[in-house]
Design a protein around this nucleic acid. Structure first.
Lengths: 244, 244
DNA sequence: CGGCTGCGTTGATGTACATCAAGCTGGCGC
DNA sequence: GCGCCAGCTTGATGTACATCAACGCAGCCG
């Protein structure tokens, strides 16, 4: 797999889909805190690319030369064990950020789930821009803190919740995040397959499938076509998610 | 439980144990990037307190008025489900930071494991100091990124590793962190009880206990007095941890 | 149109870990 | 010293979820 920097030669990838000025998710992203003047400075160091579904954006262990912002579509981040066991550590939707790294290497692999558009920043250039605009730094810090809180919620889920509670939590999370992007929070779309859901929740595809049908049977959700889920009784789902 | 701000009235708590100038873990902490002049500014807004074992420092949901740095001893962070199930999201040792929060509320409860000394900063004051010293901001960002990477490792552990692999990973983690603090990395001390280990790894105390004896039987560790563990075959433990 | 393929669902069985239940041990107060 | 208690270990049993296996179904391509 070639590094993403060679993106022009990759299949399923297009460049410069839209400029920052018309960015649809600007208020959600790192860019929210910058005014038009500052955005134009950011625009100088950004490249917007379009990636087809199921393509690798970067791999665990690669030199972390870029950071990314998803503007539309869905991506996933995951880590692998040597024998192939996989843990998806997060799904990314429009407005989400990825690629922060500690030691100059990516700590996980990033892959698109559906067709996705992404802003790519050269890390070095972003660093200098952070020096220039402290509020950019502040914003990134704030985003990292939010992600950290989400990671802790996920630890609680993985370590202590049942399959039923995990699926319910997952649905609530997707619904909430859709709302934050200004989309309807019900029914909720599942752009990822059962295997991805399983690897995100620490389950198998079979258990994910069974649990969906079980929730359907108990009447709190309904499975619609196009992998969408109708949250019939949102309060009940919320209670299940919290283990009440 | 009273808020920690009322610490002077709490039992098992002492104030101003040592000043920043003689801080034993300064190179590990947020303070590492500041020179003596700047440290003295930081010292103005810090209070060093000593807390006995098994005391709550702050609780999930409390207003996040302070941030903390552990200078010695051990603390744990955890989240609870309504029915009492608990997930410990992290252990803190000398040099570790805690209390970052997104929405002005702590996202978890912090409790001491052993007797612990802690630096307490008023968040508001730290914020203004961050404006003044951008490298302080930068440092906190870097610490948050490191924590985020650790959180992702922990997700992999909780979601995909077996009990045996979890315990092995835990021992390696403790050993590595002891080394980073300049302590010997073997044998490794376990200041926390089996219940805490279980709630950190998503297991029960019984399984933790059985797994320790199983690792002992297979000859890769030895259980010493004072809750210390001798890592007899470190490479083997490392391989178990990575699921090889 | 028909076969192939990937994905989801459902069923039968297995198992790693939880749960329930004793003992064991060491520290501590009296 | 003795008894008590909390924490650790060990054993017997249970179960939630994994594994193994089959099947349905839609999309796709020849």
């Amino acid at each position: 797999m070639p590094p993403f920097d060679m993106v022009r030669s990759m299949t399923g990838v297009g460049v410069d889909v839209h400029p920052c000025g018309t960015c649809p998710v600007r208020p959600l992203t790192v860019c929210a805190v910058l005014d038009d003047e500052e955005i134009s400075r950011l625009a100088d160091i950004v490249q917007t690319v379009r990636v087809d579904a199921q393509h690798t954006i970067f791999s665990e262990g690669d030199p972390a030369t870029n950071v990314f912002n998803v503007t539309s579509g869905t991506a996933k981040l995951y880590k692998l064990l040597p024998d192939g066991r996989r843990q998806i550590t997060g799904f990314l939707f429009g407005g989400d950020f990825m690629g922060l790294s500690v030691n100059e290497r990516y700590a996980y692999t990033a892959e698109t789930v559906s067709a996705t558009t992404i802003c790519r920043f050269a890390r070095r250039k972003l660093d200098t821009l952070m020096d220039e605009f402290p509020k950019l730094q502040r914003r990134l810090f704030s985003l990292a803190s939010t992600e950290l809180a989400a990671a802790q919620d996920q630890m609680l889920l993985l370590g202590r919740k049942t399959a039923r509670e995990k699926i319910a939590s997952f649905l609530i999370m997707l619904s909430d995040r859709a709302a934050r992007r200004g989309q309807r929070d019900n029914p909720v779309a599942l752009p990822m397959g059962r295997a991805d859901i399983a690897d995100y929740l620490g389950l198998t595809t079979e258990t994910v499938s069974r649990t969906f049908t079980q929730l359907k049977s108990s009447g709190v959700i309904s499975l619609l076509e196009n992998n969408r889920v109708d949250l019939i009784d949102r309060t009940a789902i919320h209670e299940i998610a919290e283990g009440v």
